[in-house]
Nucleic acid binder design. Structure first.
Lengths: 178, 178
DNA sequence: GCACATTAGTTGCGTGCGCAACCTTTTAAG
DNA sequence: CTTAAAAGGTTGCGCACGCAACTAATGTGC
């Protein structure tokens, strides 16, 4: 693989500039030239890769140590130690599909980490609440998760972090998230 | 759901500050108080949600219009119009599992968008190359994808964009990506 | 030259997920 | 009140994915 792969990388390196530069160049090129996209500089791909990497980094906490999958971790984090809430509310705030939420809840109930009680005011809804074991796990889990976030963001200084959060806000707003 | 949900949101709003502030507060609180995490302010979750949103936004181009799934789109974007490369190279640069790459390639071969030829120098490898139809799709697809990226990033000014890319670089480096 | 480890790529298997369909309860319309 | 529509939640089905095991080819040690 050595020789030819180096050639490939040399080719890629020559293109190692931001994509928006290509966009500028298009109009200056003859229309027969196909514009090129370098995936590793393409924002949607970068965000996906980064999000996956961050999730894997965080999963060392909630998965390796507590045996939770992402949907279960999100449910626990959303229900929280003091609140009672519904599956629908979790689906809304986490943007997970309601079936994914439903199955995560089922797992957590089976492990006796949360409990379900049908709401007397609206018997379609189920009130969700952490059990004692669930609150104990929460109390152990959350500080570790926050510490992971802190460690991750430590590579940005205060001003960079502020600017980064601002950018996330803007992008979320553009996409109609948040 | 109206009344109780409003109560929930009121509770959430009172907690609507960045999580790092909680981290600071912990030491100032009695140790019996459980720190709280608001998922919608938690960076790993925000990144996942943003990446998903951006992908959905982009998929209107490669999925609705060209019938490509994410892995196939990534393979086409990586192979590119001029290069020949291997499945392994695609797996490395996209960080996709090699089986995912293998299946994406199989689909694309079946649709006659890329062609496989075993490398004479190393007969384990398969040289991948876009077919004529593949190059035609590429030429149509890439400008649309770049335009989507441009539209997304238009919500940031030049300085904010520079800072945002810088932050992504740092985070990628911290996680050993890139 | 032969044995063993390593690499490129594919495939069977189990699983998690989204979709659609469904049940139950509540709300809206007439 | 009756009927239809809508909302909360669960489940069957099909599919994509990751893991582990496999084939085939190359590289390494002696």
């Amino acid at each position: 693989m050595a020789a030819r792969s180096d050639t490939l990388f040399a080719g890629a390196s020559a293109l190692s500039v931001r994509n928006e530069i290509f966009a500028d160049e298009i109009s200056a090129r003859p229309p027969t030239t196909t514009p090129t996209l370098l995936l590793t500089n393409f924002t949607p791909f970068r965000l996906n890769r980064l999000a996956t990497g961050v999730s894997e980094h965080l999963s060392e906490v909630y998965k390796q140590r507590f045996g939770l999958e992402i949907p279960e971790w999100r449910v626990i984090a959303t229900v929280g130690p003091a609140f009672s809430c519904t599956a629908q509310h979790i689906a809304d705030t986490t943007r997970m599909h309601k079936t994914r939420v439903s199955r995560a809840i089922a797992h957590l109930v089976k492990r006796d980490l949360i409990e379900r009680a049908s709401n007397a005011d609206d018997r379609r809804e189920m009130e969700l609440r952490l059990t004692k074991a669930g609150r104990a796990m929460y109390a152990e889990l959350i500080p570790l998760a926050l510490e992971r976030e802190r460690a991750l963001l430590a590579c940005l200084n205060e001003e960079e972090l502020r600017s980064f959060n601002e950018a996330l806000d803007r992008l979320e707003e553009f996409l109609g998230l948040a």
